[in-house]
């Protein structure tokens, strides 16, 4: 029996890999690929008449397979289905790190799941507040309400846009330059940052189009996402590489952190580093970059 440690709300989540919870061949070795999180799926990947079987399979996977440091999240069925409450029970009883709420559209949706989670934590003797939540925003309404959704619970680790459903509801197709979801991605990022939670982009569906995938990952990184959903292990490496700070960024961040300390001690607010004006927000960002570099395993300095 596996006892997983209390999940951390803030952690490295560059990649979240989806796995069908009903397929033993997939979930038994899901952790070996090295994605930061895996999402065991009870929703769309599982046929309607196999929802019950997927839960039994999920429960024993959670209790018996040692996923190590890989975060284990479960995507539950939508609140408009008869499945989600039992989904919540099995997630909590099995000790999943968190629950991804599919088709989330309002703070009230989050409250509904939170209530069911708390009830399940009490039922199964799990530490109250242990189980994290995240929201998948799949509709225009979900995007419009992103800020209140992200702030709806202390358990919220972040939100993600789900491209498949979202594009359908907007009557658009996936585009090479991402123009069809540009506004939604941007609004969700603003909402998540304003609420102080993480933000993740949708998966790239064309597994064999690595060029298109890479372009999207680079765009995600430039836009400020914390990570991305993925559907195939071969997508992991490029995301991790892209989201890790470069040597140049790390060197500059180190310089900033060191100099800022000295300047603050000397009572100076704004000053220049390498000819660029910097002040306190730069210092905070530099610390974030060092922390990210450490988490990505690419920091070799002594800060």
């Amino acid at each position: 029996m596996i006892e997983r440690k209390r999940p951390a709300k803030n952690r490295l989540r560059r990649t979240m890999m989806f796995m069908n919870a009903q397929k033993p061949g997939l979930i038994k070795d899901a952790y070996i690929y090295g994605s930061d999180s895996i999402i065991l799926d009870l929703e769309d990947a599982v046929a309607e008449n196999q929802k019950d079987a997927a839960r039994f399979s999920l429960y024993h996977a959670l209790r018996n397979i040692d996923y190590g440091d890989t975060e284990v999240l479960v995507r539950i069925n939508g609140l408009d289905t008869p499945h989600w409450q039992e989904d919540v029970r099995v997630c909590v009883a099995g000790g999943a790190d968190g629950i991804r709420i599919a088709k989330c559209e309002s703070a009230d949706n989050v409250h509904q799941v939170e209530e069911a989670v708390l009830k399940a934590e009490r039922e199964f003797g799990v530490e109250e507040g242990r189980t994290l939540l995240m929201a998948a925003l799949e509709s225009p309404l979900g995007i419009m309400n992103a800020y209140e959704i992200c702030r709806a619970s202390d358990r919220m680790l972040g939100c993600a846009i789900s491209g498949g459903d979202f594009r359908k509801s907007m009557h658009v197709q996936i585009q090479r330059d991402g123009i069809e979801m540009n506004t939604a991605r941007s609004m969700m990022l603003l909402a998540a940052r304003a609420a102080g939670v993480q933000c993740f982009d949708t998966m790239y569906p064309n597994i064999d189009d690595m060029e298109g995938f890479k372009a999207e990952v680079i765009m995600d990184h430039k836009m400020g996402f914390d990570g991305k959903s993925i559907v195939n292990p071969k997508q992991i490496a490029f995301v991790h590489e892209t989201f890790a700070p470069t040597e140049k960024e790390i060197a500059y961040a180190e310089k900033l952190v060191r100099s800022c300390q000295a300047q603050a001690d000397a009572g100076i607010g704004v000053y220049t580093v390498d000819g660029k004006m910097v002040d306190i927000p730069f210092f905070e960002d530099a610390k974030r970059i060092i922390a990210l570099a450490k988490a990505c395993g690419v920091y070799h300095g002594d800060l």
């Binding site: 033993p24 038994k28 039994f56 399979s57 024993h60 996977a61 209790r63 018996n64 397979i65």
Partner: peptide, 15 residues
Amino acid sequence: ALDCTLKARVECAVF
């Protein structure tokens, strides 16, 4: 199947 899968399938069939 792993043991955990066998258990899951037996339980599901019985339920």
